[in-house]
């Protein structure tokens, strides 16, 4: 209803407390209340804590933050987190889109396949952790048995989760393995909304496969990919359980991303206030990212207008 949409653009100057407003707000209230109570309120508590000394309860200002920023580990962990996040996004993006495109054509069993590949996503992360640790188990895991004993391709077992060189890549791959199906499903849904006639028109005009993608597929996808990219970045950056379940942040600190670092500091070392400080810094990083993201979009929009 274009008329309805225009109401948004020309919102009334004064707040009109009428039945519609009340009902609308009332309907949204439970959701807001839930988020406020279970997310915002505790987080504010966490922020408060980050300024205190846990044992004495005294206000210590920015002490914990200073401690954090002078830890040379902190910066390497930040880099690790970024590598982890960007690696995930790259893998999930590439495979998510290509799988969705591959599925974008009817063939017998297509729908069944589309459903079946969601398996990695619906399995609890605990099971995923177990699954992959078994797959790469040094002594009896199928992959090593295959490569080492059956095919004789390697002489020592390949155990990426305990091998410092490979762990970060390994956990990235497992996490991407888990999320690609969901990304593919969402991208697939978007692809389904592209009218077939647009492809046909392009084909009549002589477009080859690449042109088809560039001129028809990509324009429709770009806004969805943008949203997915933003959400994906936020969610991935904050992931704790998948990494913890696979490697416990190790070996050593090879896969200690910032969330893992928070857990270690807060729980393992019992330095709760410091843990909270790290979390606050984490949040600030993401806020900066989100702001930059929207600002960039704004600039792009104005540029093309």
């Amino acid at each position: 209803m274009s008329v309805r949409d225009r109401v948004d653009a020309f919102a009334p100057a004064g707040v009109d407390i009428d039945e519609e407003t009340l009902t609308g707000v009332g309907l949204v209230l439970p959701a807001i209340a839930l988020i406020a109570a279970v997310l915002v309120y505790p987080f504010i508590g966490a922020i408060r804590l980050s300024f205190l000394n846990i044992d004495t309860g005294a206000f210590v200002g920015l002490d914990h933050y200073r401690w954090l920023l002078t830890q040379e580990n902190f910066w390497s962990f930040t880099v690790k987190t970024l590598v982890w996040t960007v690696g995930n996004l790259a893998l999930q993006g590439f495979f998510g889109v290509t799988v969705a495109m591959a599925l974008n054509r009817q063939f017998p069993g297509r729908d069944g396949l589309r459903t079946a590949i969601l398996l990695p996503f619906v399995i609890p992360t605990a099971v995923t952790g177990i699954l992959w640790r078994w797959m790469f188990n040094g002594s009896w895991g199928p992959i090593n048995v295959l490569l080492q004993q059956e095919l004789g391709l390697i002489s020592t077992p390949f155990t990426p989760f305990v091998n410092e060189q490979f762990t970060l890549a390994a956990v990235t791959f497992v996490n991407a393995w888990r999320w690609v199906p969901l990304v593919a499903l969402i991208v697939f849904a978007v692809l389904q909304t592209i009218p077939r006639e647009q492809y046909e028109a392009a084909r009549i005009e002589g477009a080859g496969l690449w042109s088809e993608f560039y001129h028809v597929t990509y324009p429709h996808l770009s806004s969805a990919l943008s949203v997915l990219g933003l959400l994906g970045f936020l969610i991935t950056f904050n992931i704790f359980d998948m990494i913890w379940l696979l490697t416990n942040g190790g070996p050593g600190t090879a896969t200690t991303t910032l969330p893992v670092f928070v857990y270690e500091v807060a729980f393992k070392r019992q330095a709760i206030a410091r843990g909270n400080a790290i979390s606050v810094v984490l949040l600030l990083m993401l806020i900066v990212f989100v702001v930059a993201f929207f600002w960039r979009n704004q600039v792009l929009e104005e540029g093309s207008a």
């Binding site: 309805r4 109401v7 948004d8 919102a11 707040v15 519609e20 407003t21 009902t23 609308g24 707000v25 309907l27 949204v28 959701a31 807001i32 988020i35 997310l39 505790p42 987080f43 966490a46 804590l49 959400l231 936020l234 969610i235 950056f237 904050n238 704790f240 910032l258 969330p259 928070v262 857990y263 807060a266 729980f267 709760i272 843990g275 909270n276 979390s279 606050v280 984490l282 949040l283 993401l286 806020i287 989100v290």
Partner: peptide
Amino acid sequence: YVFPGRRTVARLVLLTYMFPNTALIV
């Protein structure tokens, strides 16, 4: 329904994924 802050709510909710859940455990 149309009410003030409608569009903000819609967008903001997604941004809750910005919060590191690890911060909440304590």
